[in-house]
Amino acid sequence: MRDAQFWALGVSAILTQMNGAEHDQLHSRGNTAAAKKDIIHSLKVYWSVNNREDLLENLVWLGEGGGHNLGFIEWVKLFQLKSEHRIQAYLKANPEKQSMFLVANYYQSLSSVGIRAWDDGRYVSLCRWGATAGYLTEDEAWGRILAHARDVQSAFTGWDQFAISYIAGKQYWQEKTEVDFLMKEMAHVTALNTDKDSPWVKLPWDLDLNTSI
């Protein structure tokens, strides 16, 4: 596997780590009949993906469609127009609105990227699963993954910002402000930052994704 490919798979690394799957293979759970069956089922249950068309539809939504980030960015724009005092007053008056607490927490540091990493990570994962399920050819999957990885590289400053955006996105999507939830995600990120075989450790963030071998 080329470095650029390994780097590109790193975009889906948090989800891969969570699933205990392989970071250095396109087919994260192997390319066996059992893995294929398992992935087809997961795609059906969790993504309502039953065929290639469904998969492409989801990829469009996560990619150019803006995914979950679209709604988050709308809130960021609104929060940017409010004073901190007003935001705190709003949160105080609406303690049940967990998603607003999350927006308030991240709208400044994620003002440029929002929670797009949450969409990016799943985009690359979907491409990988799509290849294993047979909904995409391997070449198609790699084409999409590499193009998306280049976009990710230009949008973020590094894996740290990417990880913040990813986890903030997952928190926002699930409206989770529990520490236990965060710590589970942090365990994956810590592993990706400390494991010498992790794509985040092995390769520099600014690897040339066009020419690297």
């Binding site: 999350l102 927490n105 991240y106 540091s109 740290d160 990880a163 913040i164 986890i167 903030a168 928190q171 989770k176 402000t177 529990e178 520490v179 939830f181 965060l182 995600e185 942090m186 990120v189 810590t190 930052n193």
Partner: peptide, 17 residues
Amino acid sequence: LCDYDVESRLLLLRANT
């Protein structure tokens, strides 16, 4: 102050390293 803040946790990881 905010136990669900991922940014602080990541910075802490960096600072500890």
